[in-house]
Amino acid sequence: MRSPHNKLQTGPGLPHPVQASAAIRPRPQTTWVRIRRHWQLYLVLLLPLLYLIVFKYVPMAGIVIAFKDYSVIKGIWGSPWVGFKYFEQFFQSPNFWLYIKNTLGISFYGLAVGFPAPIILALALNEIRSGLFKKSVQMISYAPYFISTVIMVSIIIVNLTPHVGMVSKLFEMMGVTQTNFMGMPGLFKSIYVWSDVWQYTGYGAIIYIAALAGVNPELYESARVDGASRIQKIISIDIPSLIPVSVIMLILNLGNIMKLGFEKIYLMQNPLNLATSEVISTYVYKVGLLGSSFSFSAAIGFFNSVVNLILLIAVNYIARKLSSSSLW
């Protein structure tokens, strides 16, 4: 990799006029000439860069409070160092394994169902003729993507309200008496995961539909000439052509395993289902902002980010070894 830092700093010693030489293309250009020529682009970059520094990089540096006994009066720098005190406190807390288990449980369940679902929808849509039916399926299945998390959770709750909600009514007709589904800890994961599938499968399929549209038509022609059935065609042409995109999507999903959506889970929580619905992100919010234990909460958040980063790098590494596609 080139090192832009050093060269940027050696620059200002050369105040020569460069306008004339810049116009002549083949002349070898020094770094400073190249920068000078496009100084306006750097000016344009400045504001977004400032944004990244203030709202992304300063918070990264703010992680130091995880290793300090932060108090609002003393500020970040005035607070005393305490090393790994808060990490140990978290690892030794009785609920540590419960939160890890809930976080990973919901994530992997979600991945196992939510990752193949859009692929299956795309493959199915690819099998039918274009027309009104295909268009309606596509359009209606994308629609839930635009529903906000708050509304989505309200829809879930409304549909699962005993005696009133549609899903509860259906179950009551089938003879189920206990239909307060939101209050059953054992059902929380399934409600979370399957409502996500309901909301995001149509939108998630778009990228796979695009990949299938890019398959060379000659492949289908020759498969047809060779007498391949539709199922054989799916197995030997469609699925292999989806692998590169799927690998990328899988890496991106696995990279978010620990970042499990706070918004939806927090809204779906109630005192009855907390045993299975408390995950790391909701716990961080509760002890940190509602309970004002900034350092303890920051330590948990930091632990979470690190695990997440390691997962992302590991998965990307494995993907690069096993197949040709990877994020970097």
Partner: peptide, 17 residues
């Protein structure tokens, strides 16, 4: 740019900023 996508400071430092 991409680093900010892979790693973040978490909720508390973000709130403090």
């Amino acid at each position: 740019l991409v680093i900010t996508m892979m790693f973040d400071g978490g909720l508390i430092p973000y709130y403090l900023v």
